[in-house]
Design a protein around this nucleic acid. Structure first.
Lengths: 333, 333
DNA sequence: ACACTTTGTGAAAGCGCTTACATTTGTAGC
DNA sequence: GCTACAAATGTAAGCGCTTTCACAAAGTGT
């Protein structure tokens, strides 16, 4: 592999000049510039970005930490981040945090040691305090789907409260009153927000729902099945169930069918996230759209703005969820 | 951020000694070692891996190029790769190739300029020749799901032919004879392998199927719907349809239902890949398992063996698909 | 006691770039 | 032609590590 030194020699100029034509930040005479470019082409020169990073103290790489690398939700998000950053010539280093504090911290350390210029994080387990300190300590951080007091500028959030509200309100407007709720793990902030929205909608409609129609699930399909079984075993009747994500909604629908309940004839089911799969289920799932790809792109845009100063697109910190009407919900006659 | 120099000063030893305790490849007296470790802890020292990379000519990072960052298939694969490599303290730099030649080459250039120690590639568009030259030119390459003559040692493949064979054979054994086939894009090698397996199974059962029961799809759900419509419009009867992936199988099932066909009562549907979603469809999809996560892990293991020499697990180049029986297939009485 | 290994350590030369600073060259004004 | 200043270019000092080499200290065998 050719080095800058060989290029400078072939072009008959100094190292510095070659560096300057590469970076284009200082003026170089047209004559030398073309000479250098020719030499580069002839030697098939490609700058060693490691050396560039060391010298310039800028790695042109950003760390991306998600809970899991698989799953439709993170896939779209990562895709958004990568697309936007690669268009800007930046590298994406990925890691998975598995929603576990030790693992998340470990991954962050890992990314920092690689001297990422910034970190894009989707984390549940580490504390707000930790993230604040992290950002203070010199590694700029942008956080997806979590709002951190004192760091709001760096957060790209979905209005989860509104999402929860819309989900339940949609059903209430269609005449449902006995609305069950299958939540995610309550230690997650976004989960609590969704629940809060749900409660707000109920209140608005003066609707009181017994506690036994509220189940804390685990965000997985099996959790949805279990939750539905639990609902069927308790005495309170219900005509609809709102789920905190699409996977659990799938489980609920499958379990309902196994118990000879028709969806949406006997039971309406509402999901949350609008993952790709929700279009393919039977019946097609009515859900709340979570623009994860766009939010990923926006996080990357934040980095381009604040770290690389190469984007003029404004940063949108808060995204609004919308209802996606499909076939798993039906109005009460 | 503390540097090695400050550590050496605090510990009262030379730079070299600090480096040696970090790398552990040379003997250092116990006394100095502990002094150094204490100094490191006190300064909260973390080696600058960029500088390490430049000096040692080893970046401890491997490039991972997949067709798309989203989708269950790649998600599992990436997850496998990342898990295995991070356990070894290596970084994963990801990029998406979008099954487009220019884009794939661009991404590879991108990863090379970052001086990845190796590349793990899932690519469809670039030529075998290109990959051979790439590997020759100093960047070790491991290729997933594609067999390249002259580079077989570096390929981690699924026996797609066998998969195609098993899919169709399963139906034939259950008494089906009018078996339609919805293929993927025929320019992909794995697609052709699956078709070849399908044909072999038909031949083995002396089963002749009219051409109109063979449709070339696009691997997407909509493609499955379109293919099914096309099948319904042609005159030949059929009792089963084999799909080259699960997404299209979903489309086929949805379209069948829309046309008042019961799956599996009136029509059996077979998928391929066993993506997570296939467990949640209605009816649950019978399919061929593609161990993408394990193959990703194996690709990473290949790198650990050949590049970092830190794994003793043997490399398995060829994986065997298996049939996953669920509810979308039923025997003919 | 000697010569000879072995072991631990430090000095210093890079790795391939960027960039502050020094130097040269070009240009305009007089 | 000379000065004054700007533009273009070169020089060299890092960036934070690894690693070769030299050398001193400490064992070994005779």
């Amino acid at each position: 592999m050719a080095t800058i030194y060989q290029v400078s020699e072939l072009a008959g100029v100094s190292l510095a000049t070659v560096s300057r034509v590469m970076n284009g930040n200082t003026r170089v005479s047209e004559a030398k510039r073309t000479k250098v470019l020719e030499a580069m082409k002839e030697l098939n020169y490609r700058p060693n970005s490691i050396a560039q990073s060391l010298a310039s103290n800028c790695t042109n790489s950003v760390g991306l930490l998600v809970s899991e690398l698989y799953g439709p939700f993170f896939g779209e998000m990562m895709s958004g981040v990568e697309g936007e950053l690669r268009a800007a010539g930046k590298h994406v280093i990925v890691a998975a945090g598995h929603s576990d504090e030790a693992s998340e911290k470990d991954a962050i350390e890992f990314l920092i040691s690689r001297k990422c210029d910034a970190l894009i994080l989707h984390v549940d387990a580490v504390s707000d305090q930790y993230l604040l300190e992290l950002n203070q300590s010199g590694t700029p951080v942008v956080v997806i789907n979590r709002s951190i007091p004192g760091l709001m500028e760096n957060c790209i959030c979905l209005n989860n409260q509104l999402g929860g509200y819309l989900a339940t309100k949609t059903l209430l407007e269609m005449g449902h009153r006995k609305v069950a709720y299958v939540s995610g793990p309550m230690w997650k902030t976004d989960v609590r927000d969704r629940v809060a929205g749900h409660r707000r909608a109920l209140q608005e409609f003066d609707c009181v729902v017994p506690d036994s129609l509220f189940i804390e699930g685990d965000f997985h399909e099996e959790g949805g099945v279990k939750a539905m079984l639990q609902l069927l075993q308790q005495p309170e009747p219900f005509t609809a169930v709102v789920c905190a994500n699409d996977e659990m909604a799938c489980g609920v629908m499958n379990c309902a069918r196994d118990n000879n309940l028709d969806v949406p004839g006997d039971l309406s089911v509402m999901g949350f996230d609008n993952v790709i799969m929700s279009r393919y289920t039977f019946p097609h799932l009515t859900t709340i759209d979570f623009p994860s790809g766009e939010m990923g792109r926006m996080a990357a845009n934040w980095v381009r703005q604040h770290i690389y100063q190469d984007s003029k697109k404004p940063v949108q910190n808060l995204f609004e969820p919308t209802v996606v009407m499909r076939d798993s919900v039906r109005g009460l006659a």
